[in-house]
Each structure stands twice: as structure tokens, then as C-alpha cells.
Simulated scan of single mutants.
Amino acid sequence: MSEQIKTLFQEHDIKFTAARSSILEVLKETHHPMNYEQIKEKMNITMDKATFYRNIAKFEELGMVHKFEADDRKWYFELSSTTHAHFICEHCHQITCMNVDLGNVEGDVKSIVLKGTCKECRT
């Protein structure tokens, strides 16, 4: 288990389990939002869907994980960091994180999703 994941468990005073560690490690390594199926493929252990979503709900409650729903009606998850926007290509459906300064936005912004055509699909 990486030091970053150990620190997350300690900072949020959350009990360590292999399932929780596996989910967080996958999200740490990918650096982009992933849905349940994508995370499940990369996990080093098996777990049922109910266990996955129960742990994700706990992570979200504690502010460790951020989620948003995309056009494919699937939830996407990523480790919480600064609030940022996501870009979804309407052709290939790739999701990328965008470095957009949201410091002047009033209120409690949960997610910003921009849609369009990515560079690869434009050519």
C-alpha cells in the first residue's frame, strides 16, 4: 500500500480493509475518472458490486472521492483533489480532467462537465 493511501486512511480515521485499499490504489494510479467496470478490471482483489458501492459511498461521505454522472448514465469516480472541470468527448466518450481555475465560483460546486469533440476525433 502506498504512503498516500496510508495517509488517507489515517487522516480520515477510517478502518483499513483490503477492499478499500484496492479501490483507492486503482484511483490513485489512474489519474482520471473511472466507472465501476473500469475500476473492477484493475483491482487486485475481487469484490461484489454492493461492497464496492458501500465503500465508495463512505469515501464520498468523508470527502476522499468525488463522483459525477456522465452521458452514458454511469457514475465516474476519482480521488478528491481541487475542484476541477471534466471534458467528455461526444464521439469517443473519453473523459479528461481540465485545469480550470474555479476559485471565483460562488457556492459549493460539486462538478462541472464540458462536452465537445476532442483533438483526436477532430482530425
Rank of each mutant, 00 (worst) to 15 (best):
H12W: 06
H12G: 11
H12M: 00
D13H: 15
I14H: 11
I14N: 06
T17P: 08
T17V: 09
A18L: 12
A19C: 09
A19Y: 10
A19Q: 14
R20G: 06
R20A: 08
R20S: 12
S21W: 03
S21F: 08
S21R: 10
S21H: 08
S22M: 03
S22L: 03
S22D: 06
S22N: 13
I23E: 02
E25L: 07
E25C: 04
V26M: 00
V26K: 01
V26F: 00
L27F: 04
L27E: 05
L27P: 00
K28E: 14
E29N: 02
E29G: 07
E29R: 10
E29M: 01
T30C: 01
T30H: 03
T30A: 07
T30Y: 01
H31P: 00
H31I: 02
H31N: 07
H32S: 04
H32N: 10
P33N: 10
P33T: 09
P33D: 06
P33R: 04
P33Y: 05
M34Q: 04
M34F: 04
M34I: 07
N35E: 09
N35Q: 10
N35W: 02
Y36P: 05
Y36T: 02
Y36N: 03
Y36C: 03
E37C: 09
E37Y: 03
Q38W: 04
Q38K: 13
Q38T: 07
Q38E: 15
Q38G: 05
Q38H: 13
Q38L: 08
I39Q: 03
K40W: 05
K40Q: 15
K40E: 13
M43C: 11
M43H: 04
M43S: 15
M43G: 05
N44L: 07
N44V: 08
N44E: 14
I45Y: 08
I45F: 03
I45T: 09
T46S: 14
M47D: 02
M47I: 14
M47C: 09
M47V: 11
D48R: 01
D48V: 12
K49E: 12
K49G: 05
K49I: 13
A50E: 13
A50N: 13
A50F: 15
A50K: 15
T51V: 12
T51H: 07
T51Y: 03
T51G: 04
F52M: 05
F52T: 11
F52R: 09
F52H: 08
Y53H: 14
Y53M: 05
Y53G: 01
